[in-house]
Nucleic acid binder design. Structure first.
Length: 624
DNA sequence: AGAAGATAGCTTTTT
DNA sequence: GCTATCTTCT
């Protein structure tokens, strides 16, 4: 068949995976079910493009959903192609930048394009990236200035409206055409002011990174052609999670005459509808690209037959979905364990004791994950784990980059890099306290002038320093250590966090890259380091991961499925998919637990077992 | 200006 | 039950 490729790109692939790898030209859709070897297929495909189609690594665009996925793909591709990975452990981002510059998330790829094209699109090269927190602070500020009552019109809802508009590629003027009702009128006012302030600050928020890139490509044929010619092959992973702006971006980056576009995904695992993801992108692919070849990876290598069958019952009622069915050659395995606890604490007790007994059978701590719908559920679990002395790792609850001391340090760096960033200035002006309150800032009192002079001197003094040196200079200049280390355990943890930030900074030799990294990297991205421990995280965070034994806690009506989904069919479908994602993380054992009463708003409330349990065929369940 | 205390308001998920 | 925000006091 393809003799030269035999020894490299096709080894160890099943028929469907192999067909998908060999279909290198034209539009291609790969439905990749949970545990079906998607990453393997994608990385082999990339290696095949390089080896057999003579594509250069720099000509392949591969978009992933998280930075972690990007790193993992990059590592495996380089391995397949026989690159030395000696530097990988210490500097993965450096190695990636060098060999695989176009493997990353939509956001990181857009930043790369925007920095390269900044001048020709009227953007400052040193623009700041606002994370959701920054956006929200700015929106709060604007709401106050516009004398809108933040109780009646909550900043997060207004932020959601603005984000939604940007996901639909609507500028304030574009959005104005669709506005109806008082709330949207106000949101539009805020949106206008918000955009003005972002521009003043030379800042882009997350949504702008996509939006502005799309605009740049739309409005500048030269730029568009440049990238269309550069990218011989484009691949998009987790295609079911793309939003409309990302869809538009994708179509702008491919050459319509030779659309070597390969999208990979699974509509069953579409769980980000709430933030604009549109799984119709994957369902309509054949319509958008009539020449598309479609492949389905349906053999699952991860789970037992029982787990897959159970998951099929939960996903079954979803109305809009592509026809496909996972199967496996794996063993039938034990039934799915269901446990009805009387309350949240005994639910946690059960999980702990079950983990203990399995551990006695030879499992290690890291074989276990406890998944839940809402972060609030982690508290009780954590409490019991702590009391029982089980090692655990909490993913996502208190994000590293959202810690005050970390944000302070980053705000200093951001302000040094971009003096127009008033939001960062507001943050650092009084850190540590130096008598500059909100009043002084708005009136520009002498203390503020002195502070600005001090920072300006610091900026000059530290020109050309590495991120690590810069941080050290700042800490010294403002005596930050003394400020955070108050002798309490909290102070100690603050010091540790700053030290961790210093360690991270040491991996970068340029401030721009460092700030870009911290702006775009999430907690899930760097969760895997650390000791042998049980993983606690939300169902959302678990996507893409696998564990020998998985507990899904809180299978109660109103929690999973969540309260907000009970009324609305589309949202209920998303809850199903979310539960499905959680169940298909399990390799050998799956537990579904619930509490008959749970503390809500401070008081115990009786609960009703989740419909998802009732829907699974009894023969697959073992009630204990 | 800043810190302590009181209160309200909220709880889905996050690149 | 928690926290983020507001109020009051120093």
């Amino acid at each position: 068949m393809v003799p030269t490729a035999e020894k490299s790109a096709l080894v160890g692939l099943n028929t469907a995976q192999r067909d998908a790898v060999l279909a290198s030209e034209g539009p291609v859709l790969i439905f990749a079910g949970a545990g079906s070897g998607k990453t393997k297929c994608l990385t082999h495909r990339l290696a095949y493009l390089v080896r057999e189609k003579k594509a250069k690594l720099g000509e392949i665009l591969l978009v992933t959903f998280t930075n972690k996925a990007a790193q993992e793909m990059a590592r495996r591709v380089l391995q397949l192609l026989g690159y030395p990975l000696t530097n990988w452990e210490r500097h993965p981002s450096l190695v990636m930048r060098r060999y695989l510059p176009w493997v990353g998330t939509f956001h990181s790829i857009c930043v790369r394009i925007l920095r390269a094209e900044a001048e020709s699109i009227g953007l400052k090269r040193n623009f700041t990236i606002f994370d959701s927190d920054d956006s929200l602070s700015l929106i709060r500020q604007i709401i106050k200035e516009l004398n809108i009552d933040p109780k009646q019109y909550q900043p997060p809802s207004i932020a959601a409206v603005i984000s939604g508009a940007k996901n639909e590629l609507l500028s304030p003027d574009g959005f104005a055409r669709y506005v109806s009702g008082h709330f949207q009128e106000l949101a539009l006012q805020v949106y206008r002011q918000y955009q003005r302030r972002l521009i003043e600050a030379s800042a882009l928020d997350f949504d702008d990174l996509i939006f502005v890139t799309v605009k740049a490509l739309e409005d500048n044929p030269k730029i568009r052609q440049k990238y269309q010619q550069l990218f011989r092959y484009v691949m998009v992973d987790e295609y079911q999670d793309t939003n409309n702006a990302q869809y538009r971006l994708t179509t702008l980056l491919i050459d319509r005459k030779a659309p070597n576009l390969c999208v990979v995904g699974d509509d069953f695992q579409s769980i980000y509808g709430w933030r604009g993801a549109n799984f119709n992108n994957i369902l309509n692919f054949k319509h958008d690209f009539p020449a598309a070849q479609i492949f389905k990876l349906e053999q699952n290598y991860r789970s037992t037959k029982t787990i897959l069958e159970g998951a099929a019952f939960v996903i079954g009622p979803v109305r809009r979905k592509a026809a496909k069915k996972l199967w496996t050659e794996n063993e039938i395995g034990p039934p799915i364990t269901v446990y009805e606890a009387s309350n949240g604490y005994s639910e946690a007790d059960f999980i702990v004791s079950e983990i203990r007994s399995l551990r006695a059978l030879g499992y290690s701590w890291s074989d276990f994950a406890v998944l839940y719908r809402t972060n609030a559920q982690s508290r009780v679990l954590e409490e019991i784990f702590l009391a029982e002395g089980l090692p655990y790792r909490l993913v996502g609850a208190v994000r590293f980059y959202e810690r005050r001391e970390v944000k302070d340090m980053l705000a200093f760096l951001r302000y040094l890099q971009n003096p127009a960033d008033q939001l960062s200035l507001t943050r650092i002006a009084n850190v540590p306290p130096r008598g500059i309150g909100p009043r002084t800032i708005s009136t520009g009192g002498p203390k503020l002038v002195a502070f600005l002079a001090e920072i300006e001197a610091l900026r000059r003094r530290t020109a050309g320093q590495t991120p690590l040196q810069l941080l050290e200079s700042i800490i010294k200049a403002v005596n930050y250590q003394k400020y955070i280390d108050d002798g309490t355990p909290e102070g100690e943890s603050r010091v540790e966090n700053v030290e961790e930030l210093l360690n991270l900074a040491g991996e970068f030799d340029n401030l721009e890259q460092f700030l870009e990294h911290v702006a775009l990297v999430s907690d899930v991205d760097n969760y895997d380091r650390g000791a042998d421990a049980v993983t606690l995280m939300t169902l959302h965070s678990s996507k893409g991961l696998e564990f020998t034994a998985v507990f899904i806690a809180g299978l109660e009506e109103g929690l999973l499925p969540h309260l907000r989904a009970l009324e609305e069919e589309n949202e209920m479908d998303e809850e199903r998919r979310l539960c499905y994602v959680g169940m298909t993380r399990a390799k050998k054992r799956l537990y579904l637990t619930l509490a008959r009463s749970r503390i809500l708003h401070g008081g115990f409330t009786a609960t009703v077992p989740s419909r998802f349990i009732r829907e699974i065929d009894e023969s697959l369940l073992d009630w204990v």
